[in-house]
Amino acid sequence: MTPITVRVDGATCADDVEPRTLLVHYLREQLGKVGTVVGCDTSNCGACTVHLDGEAVKSCTVLAVQADGSEVTTIEGVASGAELHPVQKAFHEMHGLQCGYCTPGMIMASIDLLQDNPDPSDDEVREGIEGNLCRCTGYQNIVRAVRCAAAEMRGVSNGHVSPDHVSPAVVDTAAAPHVAAQQ
């Protein structure tokens, strides 16, 4: 066992862990932070994404001992009280999820992207979240959600209108081109 001290979502945690414990398992099983999920065995899916000292990482590919002395933020720590983070809110409003399994990781990767690039284009969003896989949405509304959140965080809209003025109702249709074509 190796002693570690980590700040997780603002609380200091001092624990003994087996060196082989992955950060994601420490978060879920020792701290009960089950908002962060595991989606693969190959470091590909990004579902487990958290921030380590402010940078997005795949918590299934970090040992808990490597996080010693660091600050971890999970999806459970991004809202302020009852107020959702703008990216959480945008995923909700823009229908950026279906089953929701990829969502915690998508949101953590997106927040990280927006720290570096506050006004990404569609392509830049797609590249920015290339380490996160979604089996449901086809990504279309995820991209819209991230751009919508970006606009809100830059203060150019109230979050109900995306940068391209796509309302949530239009979004669903736009994500299904065969429907759009019939209109």
Binding site: E55, A56, K58, V62, D112, L113, G131
Partner: peptide
């Protein structure tokens, strides 16, 4: 190389 998360580590 890889993606943002992998490039951070």
């Amino acid at each position: 190389v890889a993606d943002r998360q992998v490039r951070h580590r």
